[in-house]
Protein backbone atom coordinates (compact mmCIF):
# COMPACT_ATOMS: atom_id res chain seq x y z
CA UNK A 1 0.00 0.00 0.00
CA UNK A 2 1.74 3.14 -1.16
CA UNK A 3 0.84 6.45 0.32
CA UNK A 4 2.26 9.93 0.16
CA UNK A 5 4.51 11.17 2.94
CA UNK A 6 2.18 12.08 5.74
CA UNK A 7 1.90 12.23 9.50
CA UNK A 8 -1.47 10.53 9.11
CA UNK A 9 -2.44 7.11 7.96
CA UNK A 10 -4.25 7.54 4.70
CA UNK A 11 -6.56 4.71 3.81
CA UNK A 12 -9.09 4.01 1.17
CA UNK A 13 -12.41 2.93 2.53
CA UNK A 14 -14.30 0.63 0.24
CA UNK A 15 -17.61 0.19 2.05
CA UNK A 16 -20.49 1.29 -0.16
CA UNK A 17 -22.50 4.34 0.83
CA UNK A 18 -26.08 4.01 2.06
CA UNK A 19 -28.79 6.63 2.29
CA UNK A 20 -30.59 6.90 5.62
CA UNK A 21 -33.39 9.10 6.91
CA UNK A 22 -32.97 10.11 10.54
CA UNK A 23 -35.64 11.62 12.77
CA UNK A 24 -34.18 13.71 15.59
CA UNK A 25 -36.26 15.01 18.47
CA UNK A 26 -34.68 18.08 20.06
CA UNK A 27 -35.34 20.74 22.66
CA UNK A 28 -36.38 23.82 20.69
CA UNK A 29 -33.86 26.36 22.01
CA UNK A 30 -31.62 28.96 20.39
CA UNK A 31 -28.74 27.45 18.47
CA UNK A 32 -30.00 23.88 18.41
CA UNK A 33 -30.21 23.73 14.61
CA UNK A 34 -26.76 25.30 14.33
CA UNK A 35 -25.41 22.54 16.59
CA UNK A 36 -26.88 19.82 14.40
CA UNK A 37 -25.75 21.38 11.13
CA UNK A 38 -22.33 22.22 12.61
CA UNK A 39 -21.89 18.59 13.56
CA UNK A 40 -22.46 17.54 9.95
CA UNK A 41 -20.16 20.13 8.41
CA UNK A 42 -17.53 19.81 11.13
CA UNK A 43 -17.23 16.05 10.84
CA UNK A 44 -17.61 15.91 7.07
CA UNK A 45 -20.98 14.15 6.97
CA UNK A 46 -23.41 14.70 4.10
CA UNK A 47 -26.82 16.33 4.30
CA UNK A 48 -29.04 15.42 1.36
CA UNK A 49 -32.12 16.97 2.87
CA UNK A 50 -33.02 18.69 6.12
CA UNK A 51 -36.46 19.54 7.44
CA UNK A 52 -37.12 21.16 10.78
CA UNK A 53 -40.09 22.54 12.62
CA UNK A 54 -41.46 22.76 16.12
CA UNK A 55 -43.85 19.85 16.62
CA UNK A 56 -44.89 20.18 20.26
CA UNK A 57 -44.93 23.82 21.23
CA UNK A 58 -45.87 23.31 24.88
CA UNK A 59 -42.92 21.02 25.50
CA UNK A 60 -40.68 23.12 23.22
CA UNK A 61 -39.89 20.11 21.09
CA UNK A 62 -38.77 20.31 17.49
CA UNK A 63 -38.40 17.46 15.06
CA UNK A 64 -35.55 17.45 12.57
CA UNK A 65 -35.60 15.02 9.65
CA UNK A 66 -32.24 14.52 8.00
CA UNK A 67 -31.50 12.47 4.92
CA UNK A 68 -27.83 11.56 4.89
CA UNK A 69 -25.45 9.24 3.06
CA UNK A 70 -22.41 7.37 4.30
CA UNK A 71 -20.89 3.97 4.93
CA UNK A 72 -22.67 1.89 7.58
CA UNK A 73 -19.95 2.83 10.10
CA UNK A 74 -20.36 6.55 9.34
CA UNK A 75 -24.15 6.32 9.64
CA UNK A 76 -23.70 4.71 13.09
CA UNK A 77 -21.33 7.54 14.04
CA UNK A 78 -23.78 10.19 12.91
CA UNK A 79 -26.53 8.71 15.07
CA UNK A 80 -24.29 8.49 18.15
CA UNK A 81 -22.86 11.96 17.61
CA UNK A 82 -26.38 13.40 17.34
CA UNK A 83 -27.61 11.44 20.33
CA UNK A 84 -24.91 12.71 22.66
CA UNK A 85 -25.73 16.38 22.06
CA UNK A 86 -27.22 17.88 25.20
CA UNK A 87 -30.55 19.13 23.71
CA UNK A 88 -31.20 15.94 21.69
CA UNK A 89 -33.86 13.63 23.13
CA UNK A 90 -33.91 10.84 20.59
CA UNK A 91 -32.51 9.80 17.26
CA UNK A 92 -34.40 7.24 15.20
CA UNK A 93 -33.06 5.75 11.99
CA UNK A 94 -36.25 5.63 9.93
CA UNK A 95 -34.53 3.68 7.18
CA UNK A 96 -33.39 1.00 9.59
CA UNK A 97 -36.88 0.54 11.05
CA UNK A 98 -38.09 -0.25 7.51
CA UNK A 99 -41.51 0.88 8.67
CA UNK A 100 -41.58 4.53 7.82
CA UNK A 101 -43.35 6.81 5.40
CA UNK A 102 -41.48 9.64 3.76
CA UNK A 103 -43.05 12.61 2.03
CA UNK A 104 -41.83 15.77 0.47
CA UNK A 105 -43.72 18.74 -0.94
CA UNK A 106 -42.58 20.70 -3.96
CA UNK A 107 -43.88 23.75 -5.76
CA UNK A 108 -42.98 23.67 -9.43
CA UNK A 109 -43.27 26.69 -11.74
CA UNK A 110 -43.70 25.97 -15.46
CA UNK A 111 -43.91 28.56 -18.22
CA UNK A 112 -45.15 27.79 -21.71
CA UNK A 113 -47.88 28.06 -24.30
CA UNK A 114 -49.94 25.83 -26.57
CA UNK A 115 -49.17 22.12 -26.59
CA UNK A 116 -46.58 22.41 -23.79
CA UNK A 117 -49.14 23.97 -21.51
CA UNK A 118 -51.68 21.26 -22.15
CA UNK A 119 -49.08 18.54 -21.70
CA UNK A 120 -47.88 20.00 -18.38
CA UNK A 121 -51.43 20.08 -17.11
CA UNK A 122 -52.08 16.52 -18.19
CA UNK A 123 -48.91 15.21 -16.51
CA UNK A 124 -49.75 17.16 -13.37
CA UNK A 125 -53.07 15.41 -13.31
CA UNK A 126 -51.39 12.02 -13.65
CA UNK A 127 -49.08 12.85 -10.74
CA UNK A 128 -51.93 14.29 -8.66
CA UNK A 129 -50.20 17.66 -8.56
CA UNK A 130 -52.52 20.59 -7.93
CA UNK A 131 -52.48 23.92 -9.70
CA UNK A 132 -52.04 26.59 -7.01
CA UNK A 133 -51.29 29.55 -9.25
CA UNK A 134 -51.93 30.19 -12.91
CA UNK A 135 -51.44 32.94 -15.47
CA UNK A 136 -52.06 32.76 -19.22
CA UNK A 137 -48.46 31.69 -19.70
CA UNK A 138 -47.58 29.81 -16.48
CA UNK A 139 -48.59 27.38 -13.76
CA UNK A 140 -47.37 26.70 -10.27
CA UNK A 141 -47.99 23.07 -9.33
CA UNK A 142 -48.03 21.70 -5.82
CA UNK A 143 -46.94 18.08 -5.61
CA UNK A 144 -46.53 15.80 -2.61
CA UNK A 145 -44.85 12.42 -2.56
CA UNK A 146 -41.63 10.63 -1.96
CA UNK A 147 -38.41 12.05 -3.33
CA UNK A 148 -38.35 9.79 -6.40
CA UNK A 149 -41.81 10.79 -7.47
CA UNK A 150 -41.02 14.48 -7.18
CA UNK A 151 -37.73 14.07 -9.06
CA UNK A 152 -39.59 12.27 -11.82
CA UNK A 153 -42.22 15.00 -12.07
CA UNK A 154 -39.60 17.72 -12.23
CA UNK A 155 -37.71 15.84 -14.97
CA UNK A 156 -40.90 15.66 -17.00
CA UNK A 157 -41.57 19.39 -16.59
CA UNK A 158 -38.07 20.36 -17.73
CA UNK A 159 -38.74 20.24 -21.52
CA UNK A 160 -42.15 21.79 -20.96
CA UNK A 161 -40.75 25.09 -19.64
CA UNK A 162 -39.63 24.47 -16.07
CA UNK A 163 -38.77 27.83 -14.44
CA UNK A 164 -38.00 26.98 -10.80
CA UNK A 165 -38.66 24.57 -7.98
CA UNK A 166 -39.07 25.02 -4.24
CA UNK A 167 -38.90 21.84 -2.13
CA UNK A 168 -39.51 21.31 1.58
CA UNK A 169 -37.13 18.40 2.01
CA UNK A 170 -38.19 15.06 3.42
CA UNK A 171 -40.46 14.57 6.44
CA UNK A 172 -40.75 11.05 7.81
CA UNK A 173 -42.94 9.22 10.30
CA UNK A 174 -43.17 5.60 11.44
CA UNK A 175 -46.09 3.35 10.48
CA UNK A 176 -48.36 1.84 13.10
CA UNK A 177 -49.73 3.15 16.41
CA UNK A 178 -46.44 3.90 18.23
CA UNK A 179 -44.67 7.28 18.44
CA UNK A 180 -40.89 7.67 18.27
Amino acid sequence: MNQPASAYFIEDRHDPNETHTLAVLVQNEPGVLARVIGLFSGRGYNIESLTVSETESQKHLSRITIVTTGTPMVIEQIKHQLDRMIPVYRVVDMTQTKRSIERELAMVKVRGEGEHRVEALRLADAFRARVIDATTESFVFEITGNTDKINQFIDLMRPLGLVEVSRTGVAAIGRGPEGM
Binding site: M1, F9, E11, H80, D83, R84
Partner: peptide, 21 residues
Protein backbone atom coordinates in the same frame (compact mmCIF):
# COMPACT_ATOMS: atom_id res chain seq x y z
CA UNK B 1 -3.91 2.02 15.98
CA UNK B 2 -1.43 2.57 13.18
CA UNK B 3 -2.82 1.19 9.96
CA UNK B 4 -6.46 0.45 10.76
CA UNK B 5 -6.97 -2.54 8.47
CA UNK B 6 -3.97 -4.28 10.02
CA UNK B 7 -4.79 -3.38 13.62
CA UNK B 8 -4.75 -6.43 15.90
CA UNK B 9 -6.21 -8.62 13.16
CA UNK B 10 -6.80 -11.81 15.15
CA UNK B 11 -8.45 -10.50 18.30
CA UNK B 12 -11.90 -10.29 19.80
CA UNK B 13 -12.28 -6.76 21.09
CA UNK B 14 -14.18 -5.58 24.17
CA UNK B 15 -14.63 -1.82 24.47
CA UNK B 16 -15.81 -0.04 27.62
CA UNK B 17 -16.66 3.63 27.08
CA UNK B 18 -19.15 6.08 28.53
CA UNK B 19 -19.53 7.77 25.15
CA UNK B 20 -21.43 5.62 22.62
CA UNK B 21 -19.91 7.65 19.77
Amino acid sequence: TGRVDAFSPGSKKIHIDIDPS
